[in-house]
Design a protein around this nucleic acid. Structure first.
Lengths: 232, 232
DNA sequence: TCCATGCAGATGTAGGACATATGCACAGCG
DNA sequence: CGCTGTGCATATGTCCTACATCTGCATGGA
């Protein structure tokens, strides 16, 4: 026996392409909303047939990450698979349910973050809080929404459960549009205070107070949503 | 202008095929583990080209619902997309995180179920509880696991938030294997009591007690998991 | 300035061909 | 009789070509 050939079970080309494309979407090389190169171009550049490229692109399209438009091209639609699925299956009055789930996840994260946050978590939390206040003062809606999202996501990261963070990202992304639409500045003065109190509770390791703050935060949000979003 | 042709924007064939195949998987026509008809057969029966069928099958494969095997055929792997994604991305020590998320979702559901359960929910809950006890008494592990799952799922359904139920199903299915593996009968006598107490609290509309029962339930589960699953 | 037209290029679909891997039946051997 | 190796039928994987259909955009005319 001269030499054993590699017994490796190499993944099909289509799967490799999928991974590669997914990576390009995830690292921002193909930003959300942008048009990716055409199928023929991708095929010739990658040295594979158009059919293979199409299968990979179709898979990502069905997953909700891409959106092909006949006669135009293929565009990037989302970065996270879970979010894409939730967005696609979203029905009419789901916004309240989505918000409810978000509050569940974030309240749970607040408790866990208070118990095991690191110094780095605290620092990130403080910075996001400062950015948030600055954007509020400047009445910069985009910056405010971004800083607010960063604050909440930092909290989710600090809870130490990656699955919880993943679900939160998915749920959150599926309602990001309505968040931006319903945001108006300046914010209720009390809201900023509750955010700060939540950060304090997490820093102090006070799980009960962290939970109470998170619940209070969402009681306000729910109230605002009920007032502005219920035409009946 | 004699007559306007239909201005409908009909979905691409591939998407239609995907929906159809997904339906066949979902309604059990293509059971989990079974081998579906070959690409050529599907193509000729459906009157489309093999490439089109392949794109649809590939999309479902990437979604985790199907698993193609070269030289053999294509097999059904899972029924739910979310579960497939979570299962696929699952890393080593995620079981604890998964269990943690499950407890979060179920505790939240217990609170909401206590507030707005219907008479039908109560009846289903009682029936699942009885099945559970009967299976425990008969030491029938399969029936016990099934009845226990039915009890918890009924609780999730009673909470009135379909998104919460959906996430629960996904998270739960991704750990169903380890559940069956670690289950042994007869159960801890206290566990059955807590289940009954949870049903009582929900029926009485006592959200606080329902939350406490759910938390207690998962404290036990977590303890058992920590004892049996931590070799270090 | 505005609109209709036509073109170039994109995705959608069809059909064929060959490569490669697997399951299984069958024949050959111990 | 049992085991094993071989070969065939068939499955998916990949490539190729061709054409249909749709869209964005430039171009040119009212």
């Amino acid at each position: 026996m001269p030499r054993m050939t590699a017994p490796v079970r190499q993944e099909p080309l289509v799967m490799q392409l999928c991974e590669q494309f997914r990576g390009l979407i995830d690292d921002g090389t193909w930003p959300i909303g942008s048009r990716i190169p055409g199928e023929n171009q991708l095929a010739s550049e990658l040295g594979v047939s158009r059919g293979t490229v199409r299968e990979a692109l179709r898979a990502l399209s069905m997953a909700g990450l891409l959106e092909p438009r006949v006669g135009d091209g293929t565009y990037v639609r989302a970065r996270d698979e879970l979010a894409a699925i939730l967005t696609r299956d979203q029905r009419g009055d789901d916004l309240r349910h989505t918000l409810d789930v978000r509050s569940v996840l974030e309240t749970a994260a607040a408790i866990r973050a208070a118990r095991q946050r690191t110094e780095e978590d605290i620092r990130d939390l403080r910075r996001a809080l400062a950015d948030r206040a600055a954007a509020d003062a400047a009445e910069d809606v985009d910056a405010y929404v971004e800083a607010d999202a960063a604050f909440h996501r930092t909290l989710m990261r600090a809870c130490g459960n990656p699955l919880l963070l993943r679900l939160y990202d998915a749920v959150n992304e599926s309602m990001v549009a309505s968040i931006r639409r319903t945001t108006s500045l300046p914010e209720d003065p009390q809201t900023g205070g509750v955010h700060a109190a939540l950060a304090d509770a997490v820093e102090a390791g006070d799980a009960d107070r962290a939970r109470a703050c998170a619940a209070e935060l969402f009681r306000e949000v729910e109230f605002l949503s009920a007032v502005s979003g219920e035409p009946s």
